[in-house]
Design a protein around this nucleic acid. Sequence first.
DNA 1: ATGGTTTTGTGAAAGTAATCACGAAAACTT
DNA 2: AAGTTTTCGTGATTACTTTCACAAAACCAT
Lengths: 213, 213
Amino acid sequence: MVKSKIPQATAKRLPLYYRYLNNLQHQEKTRVSSKELSEAVKVDSATIRRDFSYFGALGKKGYGYNVEYLLNFFRETLDQDELTEVALIGVGNLGTAFLKYNFLKNNNTKIVKAFDTAGTKIGTEIGGVPIFHIDELEERLPGIKVVILTIPASEAEVMTERLVKIGVEGILNFTPARITVPSHVRVHHIDLAVELQALVYFLKHYPLEDKKE
Amino acid sequence: MVKSKIPQATAKRLPLYYRYLNNLQHQEKTRVSSKELSEAVKVDSATIRRDFSYFGALGKKGYGYNVEYLLNFFRETLDQDELTEVALIGVGNLGTAFLKYNFLKNNNTKIVKAFDTAGTKIGTEIGGVPIFHIDELEERLPGIKVVILTIPASEAEVMTERLVKIGVEGILNFTPARITVPSHVRVHHIDLAVELQALVYFLKHYPLEDKKE
DNA sequence: ATGGTTTTGTGAAAGTAATCACGAAAACTT
DNA sequence: AAGTTTTCGTGATTACTTTCACAAAACCAT
Ligand SMILES: NC(=O)c1ccc[n+]([C@@H]2O[C@H](COP(=O)([O-])OP(=O)(O)OC[C@H]3O[C@@H](n4cnc5c(N)ncnc54)[C@H](O)[C@@H]3O)[C@@H](O)[C@H]2O)c1
Ligand SMILES: NC(=O)c1ccc[n+]([C@@H]2O[C@H](COP(=O)([O-])OP(=O)(O)OC[C@H]3O[C@@H](n4cnc5c(N)ncnc54)[C@H](O)[C@@H]3O)[C@@H](O)[C@H]2O)c1
């Protein structure tokens, strides 16, 4: 396992590279340069080469990268073979959308259980995922380390404490609540309202620069 | 208007601060320190003070920040009064969730129109937002500068060209496609599959450090 | 008033990330 | 086979962001 020398910024781009390499393979392309890759994923080519270089010399000068080799390498590095089981808490608007989609294109993450309070949903399935009552959380969650949280913000803090107690290690938090967790639990916030507002702010306050390209 | 001296990292946190200050005001709190704010929004207190300092000296030493004053200041700075009208393209799983939610808590952004190809949806409303056929895009979009894109990835590039031609300036792109736009158009990518995979990667490869706190 | 306490605002330092730019290697071309 | 072109890998640089740490200001209690 490659030790934690890899910058976080790089780690966040790896799934992106992986997905595009997969596309290339489906198109039967055998080689790709950092320049081509750069145009496709919109990341500077030097950044891509630097990112790859943390894992060693994966390319060939004057040639580029071999798609299959690179893909195999990342498959191992990103543990694309191991399936990570994920639970979803809160089968509302957003939760339902995720269940229907279920990240099918990824072959390494899968929502396997969902929980809610609403009686009408309990016992049904969405996208093949069974929905349980939240009261069964302690009983049914153990073994699952990653949770997608799509409940009302007001419930987030209490639910988080519950999840942590059960042993959850990672939370993808879609609620606007900034939840508090012990240091061994990782939370990624995806705050859609903030994203939209930030985009609007940038449009109004940042001159439409002439970026290169 | 405060010129573009404000770091992007700061700009992205502003809506977060704003929302929390709003909460405080509803709780009738009159003052708040960077330390309190820090615990609530999970941003280092020095970072918060630095962020605020780009806008001048907004606080008082030994006291903190006056909630109402700060809120009024940011209301203007963030143009919270002006309503930005947004359109949504692609009323599928994700698009429907956004329409139902419609960022009601924000008072500065509102989805006012949606577009899709599916005959069954055209002419109906979701969350009060009328859904039009995509063929009417050129006719009905003008005036709207910001678009939320929730169509299949395969459609993204062509649709983007169309949007740019109509004059859209900002796109919140939920498709996995990395779309190409001219330099005067701003795109924010929210790639949910990547976010989930990145979280899983961090869990597996980054030791559960003892972060402070 | 006085003195201890709180908390800001910010220089300086540290940390993190992106980009430049070029030598070296390998690939193509003729 | 020699010359040209492509493209990597990376040292060095630049840019951006966070954090430390402390003087100065304002508060608060007596
Ligand atoms: N839908 C959006 O477009 C959107 C956008 C930005 C943010 N969000 C945030 O995402 C979260 C979910 O949004 P939504 O629109 O899906 O809301 P929703 O109200 O449609 O769904 C919430 C679901 O959680 C369930 N629930 C409530 N308390 C629960 C509990 N204690 N345990 C388990 N389930 C519980 C409810 O029964 C409901 O099904 C909210 O925090 C919201 O602020 C949503
Ligand atoms: N749902 C999720 O949880 C999820 C997660 C990650 C990424 N995404 C991405 O978000 C996007 C939308 O996902 P979804 O699950 O809502 O898909 P979906 O298939 O449910 O919805 C897509 C909608 O777009 C409409 N559409 C197709 N072509 C169109 C066109 N040219 N113009 C206008 N409308 C058109 C379809 O009729 C459909 O209603 C996809 O790109 C998907 O990869 C979704």
